[in-house]
Design a protein around this nucleic acid. Structure first.
Lengths: 193, 193
DNA sequence: GAAAAATTACCTACTAATAGGTAGTCCGTC
DNA sequence: GACGGACTACCTATTAGTAGGTAATTTTTC
């Protein structure tokens, strides 16, 4: 799917790490070139502008997230298991510090200063994630797997917001464990016993 | 308390707005000077460096937050009312777009790239807010005003994370209402009926 | 299957704009 | 006449991005 060369992928990967650390304005071409081992100007060969680079990155990210969710629904067909797997994925990412924040969540925080094409991609991620959560919760509620306090829509938005907030707290405290402390009761509340 | 001149306060206020929009690296002295109406270099007269400026801003912010909470505890002595007032404060800020994000929450998202003195102040805000929430919840649970599902500490962290996540969602969707959609059930769950 | 043409992927060298910050000066007020 | 608060002028580093060139690879054509 991703028609990127090895170098282009290395550029995207380092951009991902850098953005997750400090956001859109928190990195420069120089930072990338240091990591990837090519000259500053050569990045423009792969991505004409910074907007192109970040747009490609977020588009890939959204695609990967979609694929990850599809895979997750196959290995964890029960809604409760899917929610657990989703939270578990992030718990692992935060614990091993491989990607201690959702790329789109971090970019969303800076939405007012993002170039419009990037902002568009970020908004699309939020809509897609929310839509998936709604569908999982509705399915779970129908099967008795999930217990909803309010509407599926409201519970989905609460779920997403709490997970994002838990990422932020883990970062603020410098403590990966707090993510689990916050998300475990969130799952417990939703999953019928 | 704040020994800042009128100009210094104008600088701090515009820095506040700019950071809430785009974070630490999302603004420059030029941006401030345009708003305040003084030259770039004159900002250094009031705040020697950018780190000094943002540190002073966050320190003031923390002080104001402390004062606001103290005032809130006077006007709303009941724990349930205090929680409602806290959420209501942010709902108003987001709705009228006067300060559509918590300064420290936004800075916390960029914690890995913040200068250490700023990072220190930001962490302190999280600890203080968490400590206040714990005390309110404990007090409420004792008086039967609040119903806790888990420990006060866990519920406080969940509360804070959900509020921060709700701010993020409101920004991502460009819809202030989503903040209330997420926080109303959060309050309902905690407040005994 | 070899020559020619186009494409890929990088390079050096450069530019205009912007970043935060410094030095020294001027002006009004107490 | 000292001082606060602003100024002009300047500096150095960094920003994203451009221009033009080179070597290697791939594609096209005869």
């Amino acid at each position: 799917m991703s028609a990127h060369s090895a170098t282009a992928q290395a550029i995207l990967q380092s951009a991902h790490t850098l953005i997750v650390d400090g956001g859109y304005n928190g990195f420069s071409y120089a930072d990338i070139s240091k990591v990837v081992g090519i000259r500053n100007a050569s990045i423009h060969h792969h991505f004409p502008s910074k907007v192109d680079l970040v747009c490609a990155l977020v588009a890939d990210y959204r695609h990967d997230a979609e694929a990850g969710i599809a895979a997750l629904e196959r290995t964890a067909p029960e809604p409760s298991a899917a929610l657990r797997a989703y939270v578990g994925y992030w718990e692992a990412c935060i614990t091993d510090a491989s990607a201690p924040f959702c790329l789109c969540a971090l970019l969303a925080a800076q939405l007012p200063v993002l170039p419009e094409p990037v902002a568009f991609e970020v908004r699309a991620h939020f809509r897609a994630l929310s839509a998936w959560l709604v569908s999982v919760l509705e399915r779970g509620a129908k099967h008795g797997d999930i217990h909803l306090g309010g509407s599926a829509k409201t519970e989905a938005e609460t779920f997403m917001a709490t997970v994002h907030g838990a990422m932020l707290s883990a970062r603020a405290y410098g403590d990966a464990q707090i993510f689990g402390v916050i998300t475990q009761p969130l799952l417990d509340r939703l999953i019928a016993h």
